[in-house]
Amino acid sequence: MPAISKKGVAMPESPIRKLVPYAEDAKKRGVKVYHLNIGQPDIKTPQIALDAVKNNTIETLSYARSEGSETYREKLANYYVKNNIPVNANNIIATTGGSEALLFTIGSITDPGDEIIIPEPFYANYNGFSTASGVNVVPVISKIENNFALPKIEEFEKLITKNTKAILICNPGNPTGYLYSEEEMDKLKALVLKHDLFLIADEVYREFAYDGLKHTSVMSIKGLENNAIVIDSVSKRYSMCGARIGCIVSKNEAFIKTAIKFAQARLSPPTYALLASEAALDTPQSYFDNVIEEYVERRNTLISALEKINGVKVAKPKGAFYCVAQLPVKDSDHFAQWLLESFNYQNETVMVAPASGFYSTAGEGKNQVRIAYVLNKQDLLNSVKILEEALKKYPN
């Protein structure tokens, strides 16, 4: 039998999606499943974006430009300028989701065997994208005890080697919901300039900053023009996960010229999705104001309820719409599967994402889960009640 590649064997499973068959089986048995496992908002997509696709007069659905249409990139640049990110259309490459933006970025700045330092827990697919490129993830652990704040900069520095090419952060964070302060960003700036590294910031949750806190984009920090790379997406901002439109933003001309070659190799992002994404940029501020208010209420509802469960510790998110909860269990992978296979409370159960998949350090996160508060407040309360009852009955 022909052999599978070592890279393919090493490719990690998604901690978010690997339990889907168990959830589907539970539903077939008539059990209602509350999906807390995936960041699929239930917020409605702006009507203006949907109408752009429904009401267009395209007769031939042709290729878009490899880097995305000029009108979209110019309009997108205006959005960034309004958010204190001074860029122009030539600094932007439209991609098929933030995922492709990350793949193009890693492909443009690393060679096999190179290293990227990432604070963990981190978005699980960072592991997958790095494995696909033959790149090694070097983790620096953040702790639930201090709300997953940026680890000490000395912890980053002692991990830097001749193979280190970049530091990658998610801000606000997935899975933690942590929002890096301006002071923390300045510390990273000093480090990457000292060692001549790229600082990649996944900023897809930029709008979701709570409690009066402000998001600090890596692209708004003076002096990082040649080092900063932003990964972005319309998926969460406009509740358009299915559009699969993201982008790379950078003022480093050599990097952009290189990334465009990757964009050309895959031809173009999807034309209809570009139309919807361009129209979405006209979404009124009131949409975001209402969404942020809703997520703050959901966050407060969820965290308050979780904190009342004996033995549960939870970090309070400052942004995005995720939290990491530490449970009184030894193996959250087993617990998450058990919830779907063997447990229900009043014919209902919950699906969570085991947090070990958001770490690359072996053994970390084994008693933690990521919860996405993308459901309405009553569903969140129901979910926490189910979780509480499950912990009472789980044969730990």
Rank of each mutant, 00 (worst) to 15 (best):
V249C: 04
A228G: 03
L213D: 12
A280M: 11
L267V: 15
A280G: 08
P270W: 10
N252A: 10
S268G: 07
T283E: 00
A279Y: 03
G242Q: 15
S277E: 01
A305D: 12
I245C: 11
A279K: 04
P270L: 11
A279S: 13
K261P: 02
A280L: 09
G311I: 07
G246Q: 06
E307R: 14
K257W: 12
E203M: 14
I309K: 07
H195V: 10
G246I: 05
S250H: 13
L197N: 03
V192P: 10
I260W: 09
V312F: 05
E225P: 03
I229N: 11
I229C: 04
R244F: 15
K194Q: 13
N290V: 03
Y210M: 07
S220L: 13
P317D: 11
I303Y: 07
T283D: 00
R244A: 12
E203W: 08
Y205S: 02
R299H: 10
T258E: 13
A259E: 06
A280T: 06
R244M: 15
E297I: 11
I292G: 00
E225K: 00
G223Q: 13
T258F: 03
Y272I: 08
A305I: 06
F288E: 04
S286P: 01
D282A: 07
A228H: 08
D289G: 00
A259K: 02
V291F: 07
L267W: 10
I221L: 13
K222D: 14
D232V: 00
Y287R: 12
K316M: 05
A279D: 09
K194N: 15
D196R: 13
D211P: 03
I221N: 04
A315Q: 04
M219R: 06
E225F: 04
S250L: 07
R237F: 02
I303D: 01
A265M: 13
N226M: 10
H215T: 03
R237V: 05
S268M: 05
K194P: 05
D196M: 13
G246M: 07
A315K: 06
S286I: 15
K222Y: 12
A263W: 04
I256N: 00
K214P: 00
P284I: 03
F262L: 14
T283L: 03
